[in-house]
Design a protein around this nucleic acid. Structure first.
Length: 267
DNA sequence: GCGACAG
DNA sequence: ATCTTGTCGC
């Protein structure tokens, strides 16, 4: 992939104030509406074809390309893996790495892990139809979380998938009740989100998987939000279409597994 | 001042 | 995120 907005490269040496200022610019550049020419059902189709036979799908290769990205950490550097999936089959893998120069700071995650991700994506040959990042996108203090930052850097459709809520208020308390598979609860901007009006839908809780009997065993919902060029509702559709019976989207699971072995020196 | 805070 | 095995339940 080729950088589209190099001026937004996540330079870890910037001051916190400069990082925040950049995020405000990124949020203004970001598009939180559908601009991708991607049909959620095309992704669902790709997944169902999946188990059937990857080999054939790989040969055909005309479905949308979804790229999952994930990071892992070592002593003092971050490694990133990008896995491209088309018609349910892995068609390419790319790795990246970058020294860890700053600690984890809520709201500034992209400046800690971003360089490794950029490194990986720049070496990716295929042109993704959708990027799936592990973290928030629009659900962010300045509407410029990791998924939005990366999406804007490459001007590619992107969504963020997180396991925990960074900020914002769900329209319904999710702590009290376990959601059923497929359920979604909107997350609205509140005072913590400085760049848009309170009440704006900035993402959703999405229950990608749930056990039949929530009594003893339950699964926590995902927190999904638009990264770039995808609306909040479609973000849920995309994530739903890429989850194949597991809590996390398939592209993310692949990236997870690969980056794990890479970080442990297994590859 | 205190709490909250993706990975 | 990471340090880490088995174990309980679906």
């Amino acid at each position: 992939m080729e950088l589209s907005a190099p001026e937004f490269l996540p330079d870890p040496s910037l001051s916190a104030a400069e990082m925040e200022a950049m995020q405000r610019d990124i949020a203004e550049t970001a598009v939180f509406d559908d601009d991708h020419g991607l049909d959620p059902s095309a992704l669902a189709l790709a997944d169902s074809i999946n188990a059937a036979d990857d080999a054939q799908a790989t040969l055909d290769g005309d479905g949308p390309v979804v790229v999952g990205v994930d990071q892992a950490f070592r002593e003092d550097d971050a490694v990133s893996a990008a896995v491209a999936i088309r018609d349910g089959a892995v068609v390419e893998r790319a790795y990246g790495a970058a020294d860890l120069e700053i600690p984890y700071i809520p709201g500034l995650l992209a400046f800690r892990e971003g360089s490794a991700i950029v490194d990986a994506l720049q070496s990716l040959a295929v042109d993704p139809d959708l990027l799936v990042l592990d973290g928030s996108g629009r659900i962010h203090y300045r509407e410029a979380g990791l998924a939005t930052h990366v999406g804007v850097l490459f001007d590619a459709p992107a969504v963020g998938v997180a396991k925990n809520l960074l900020c914002g208020t769900p329209v319904e308390d999710v702590e009290d009740r376990h959601l059923a598979a497929g359920e979604r609860v909107a997350i609205e901007a509140d005072d913590e989100v400085e760049t848009c009006a309170n009440g704006t839908t900035i993402g959703h809780y999405y229950q990608s998987k749930q056990y039949d009997t929530p009594e003893r065993r339950h699964v926590n919902p995902l927190v999904v939000s638009p990264g770039h060029r995808v609306g909040a509702e479609t973000t849920v559709e995309f994530v739903a279409a890429t989850c194949a019976g597991y809590k996390l989207p398939e592209p993310t699971r692949h990236a997870d597994a690969l980056v794990g072995e890479r970080a442990r020196g297994e590859r």
